[in-house]
């Protein structure tokens, strides 16, 4: 008999014990380890998913902020540009105003300078004219300037037209005070006498007057008369002065300066472009050395 029933029973029991032992020592621990690891992997995957979602969210946030920042930057930049443009316009206007003011001031200064220069020139000319005249007269003749003045005055008196003479004679006659003879400098006695004689000669007086035939004349020095000499009596005046010449000279100089000023203040319109015909570039020719 191949089957031993005791052995069958024992083997069945052994098998059941082995099932229990392997369940206890093999399947449960191994399956638990596998489950633990799977759980761990699932957790890690879930964690990674969460982190990925968070990262995606952070990335979206960051992008959104970035876009916002770009927009803000662009708007700020455009605003700053506009402000800078406005500031530039304002500064330019200010600078233009300042330049205009400075230019006007400069023109005023130039005008004043010209005026002062005119005055200085006229004074200088006056003095120079005196000096030159004096020197010329001294050089040309033995007579002094005073003598010439007196001579000129006397000649004028003589050359007066009839109507003027009558007016002056009338004035001399009716004068209650002596005629006033004013000159820029003291007339020497000869000249005084000459003038007195000439007056007596031209305007013969009535010998019955208290003064007799002589016309009463009072000589006076008046430095404000510019190298002149004048006779005043009872509202009538006969005068000769270099001031007239000086006045005309002054007028001439002023006109000249005004012309210059106009020339300065009104510059000729835009410089004209000069169109020159195009010239062919010159080809440097070797110099022919002629012996």
């Amino acid at each position: 008999m191949l089957i031993d029933w005791f052995t069958v029973a024992a083997q069945a029991l052994n098998f059941l014990i082995l099932v229990w032992l392997l369940k206890r020592f093999l399947y449960q621990p191994i399956l638990q380890a596998i489950d633990g690891r799977e759980q761990r992997i699932v957790n890690e995957l879930a964690d990674a998913g969460t982190k990925k979602a968070e990262a995606q969210k952070d990335r979206d946030d960051f992008q959104h902020k970035n876009e916002l920042f770009d927009q803000q930057r662009a708007s700020l930049l455009s605003k700053a540009t506009d402000e800078a443009k406005a500031e530039r316009q304002r500064l330019l206007a200010e600078a233009r105003q300042a330049a205009d003011a400075l230019s006007a001031k400069r023109q005023d200064t130039l005008r004043n300078d010209a005026k002062n220069l005119n005055q200085a020139i006229s004074r200088q000319i006056q003095q120079e004219v005196f000096a030159i005249t004096r020197k010329a007269l001294m050089d040309l003749a033995t007579t002094s300037l005073e003598e010439r003045l007196a001579e000129v005055f006397i000649r004028r008196l003589r050359e007066m037209d009839v109507q003027a003479k009558e007016c002056l004679a009338e004035a001399l006659k009716t004068a209650s005070s002596p005629a006033l003879m004013r000159s820029a400098f003291d007339l020497p006695v000869e000249q005084r006498t000459a003038i007195q004689q000439t007056l007596n000669e031209i305007f013969p007086t009535d010998p019955s007057t208290p003064h007799g035939t002589s016309i009463p004349v009072r000589f006076e020095t008046a430095p404000d008369l510019v190298c002149g000499i004048e006779l005043t009596t009872n509202g009538q005046k006969v005068a000769w002065s270099i001031a007239d010449y000086l006045a005309s000279l002054q007028k001439g100089v002023d006109e000249l300066l005004q012309d210059n000023d106009k020339g300065e203040s009104k510059p000729s319109s835009e410089p004209k472009l000069q169109v020159k015909p195009e010239t062919k570039p010159e080809v440097p020719q070797p110099e022919a050395h002629s012996q």
Binding site: D4, T7, A10, Q11, N14, I17, L18, L21, L22, F25, L26, P29, I30, Q32, A33, G36, R37, R40
Partner: peptide, 29 residues
């Protein structure tokens, strides 16, 4: 008999081997 004896030997080998290996199982990777 030999059948039972060898069976015990196998049981011992399987149980002890499993026990030894599963004594320090790791749930790490």
């Amino acid at each position: 008999n030999a059948t039972i004896a060898f069976t015990w030997g196998l049981m011992l080998m399987l149980a002890v081997g499993s026990k030894l290996i599963t004594r320090k199982l790791s749930t790490e990777l």
